[in-house]
């Protein structure tokens, strides 16, 4: 599961911070916070590039491996969490993937706000291919196969049909 947050060093979409050197140098690159457990599972080291993929798209980020984020254990099932700061984009002094590329548009019934703080995702170690190669790559890695809501105590309903399962069982999502 991914969750998003803001950093003190940047302001929202970064329009007022990514263009200022004094703020940019404090957080100069997009990163994703992952737990040592997940890093081990994925085989990535601190500072390696990883790609975060959802149905909407994919971004790459540097893995910031830290005990500050921990997997949650629910009934014996482990749910890994990935922390993604907002703020980055393609312009400015420092650039990086926009976490918003990954989030879905949804509407809370009272105020039609989107759900930005929790979503399922897939993680692929390595860098994001550029150019046309991206299309093929994301088709391969987009989360598929798992049922919308995998109960911790139930076996996956229909895993045979879809593509590959996301590594480590974090991030199962339906695809309509």
């Amino acid at each position: 599961m991914l969750t998003t947050y803001r950093l003190t060093e940047h302001h929202t979409a970064g329009g007022m911070s990514r263009f200022l050197s004094h703020l940019s140098e404090l957080q100069p690159e997009m990163f994703a916070e992952i737990s040592p457990e997940l890093a081990r599972e994925l085989g990535v080291k601190n500072g390696d590039y990883i790609c975060i993929v959802t149905l909407r798209g994919a971004i790459e980020a540097r893995a910031l491996v830290s005990r500050r984020i921990r997997p949650v254990h629910l009934n014996g099932k482990t749910v890994h969490q990935v922390g993604l700061p907002y703020h980055f984009g393609t312009s400015g002094l420092v650039r990086g993937g926009a976490a918003n590329d990954l989030l879905s548009i949804s509407g809370e019934p009272n105020v039609t706000i989107m759900e930005a703080k929790a979503a399922a995702c897939n993680i692929v170690p390595g860098r994001l291919p550029r150019g046309a190669a991206f299309e093929e790559w994301i088709n391969k890695h987009v989360p598929t196969g798992g049922p919308a809501n995998l109960h911790p105590e139930q076996p996956p309903l229909d895993t045979a049909k879809g593509g590959e399962n996301p590594p480590g069982g974090h991030g199962k999502e339906e695809k309509e």
Binding site: T12, A13, G14, G89, N100, D101, I105, S106, M114, A116
Partner: peptide, 14 residues
Amino acid sequence: GQNPAVGAPNSRLQ
């Protein structure tokens, strides 16, 4: 004061 191209959800769609 808004930057939906990276600051709104599903910014690819935006």
